[in-house]
Design a binder for these strands. Structure first.
Lengths: 183, 183
DNA sequence: GGACACATGTAATCGGTTACATGATTAC
DNA sequence: GTAATCATGTAACCGATTACATGTGTCC
């Protein structure tokens, strides 16, 4: 998914500035689709405007640069719907944590412990964020994806909490000096 | 994770050619860490060799170009371990499927149905692949990550099977013409 | 006094993909 | 005959990140 489509996706849920789009894409609900930085969002928005898929409205503010609030047009909306109807790429899961787990035997137990805690904290955080969002927000798509996310993350967290110790043990056993074998 | 680290990761589990590394990164066990194409793997391998982190051995074959089998060196191994000890990026999940689900109301029910079936098939396929790999392969890291993957995917699949219909219904209800409201 | 949130934008750079080039072997 | 698998490699291109540039208001 390109930054272009990401902008259309976010704008289809309501007006936003480039700054807000970045926030949504790195933190909010849309972080499941694509991350993007300012350097890619601002040019994408400018191009989208020149193509007539979005419109801008400047809101001057005292002190700060004027906010440029973007709105999706009908043309933009239909381009986005068409995009969604095309075959999409597969879902992907990229896990530096699993790479560490895979190599647990070669790593110091502390590194495993840290990675595990970090991963657990991350899942808890994302779970919390999902639970905090509007419980019954009347938008069925949001409710469905929210429940899906909660279910998957609870499962992941459970697994990490139940089997985390076993992973640490792998590293500890491998780290033991040979002399221990005599005991 | 860069293609460079990916090569080191794969070679730390055994010798491989560039061709094999690509296969492992797009299909095999290592697809959880990074995808890579030939255009990035071959140059990375060449650079790794010039830095002394891997060695090459050519195996001539009749007809085909000689296979260039790469092996990791001690220097390569320790660079890889050091890399794993550094703080890693967060795990990420990118889901075009969830984007479709989020917009279920705006899409034709058939598109939702297709996306759902595709996603289920993908999860089943990945699950099957994990179950097919060596049940007790004596490598503890592999066993742990394998069990983790199976647990998470089973949970995902269960959710899709139990709540998939509800998602299709969202699209169907939204697609209903207004006159239906009279019934 | 310093860090952080708000707010927009450009330029250099980089990492990676896609397409190209080459070619034998095997399976349908 | 035609597609897929094996097998390596280069060059053009592209999308996105990082760093830079600028500036105010607010919280600690």
């Amino acid at each position: 998914m390109s930054v272009r489509s990401l902008c259309l996706a976010i704008l289809s849920f309501g007006d936003a500035t480039g700054y807000e789009i970045r926030k949504e894409s790195t933190e909010g609900r849309f972080s499941y689709f694509e991350d993007a930085s300012f350097g890619s969002i601002y040019p994408a928005l400018a191009r989208l405007e020149s193509e007539g898929l979005v419109t801008v409205r400047e809101e001057p503010q005292a002190g700060k640069p004027a906010r440029k609030v973007y709105s999706i047009t009908e043309a933009g909306r239909s381009e986005f719907i068409n995009y969604l109807c095309e075959p999409q790429a597969r879902d992907t899961f990229k896990s530096p944590f699993l790479l560490i787990a895979l190599n647990a035997e070669q790593l110091p137990p502390d590194v495993i412990r840290r990675a595990l805690e970090r991963r657990k904290a991350q899942v808890r955080e994302e779970l919390q964020q999902l639970m905090d969002t509007d419980k019954e927000c009347s938008h069925p798509g949001s409710n469905w994806t929210r429940s899906y996310g909660i279910a998957c993350m609870n499962c992941t967290l459970d697994y990490l909490e139940e089997h985390g110790e076993a992973l640490i043990k792998i590293a500890e056993d491998a780290a033991k000096p040979v002399s221990d074998a005599a005991e």
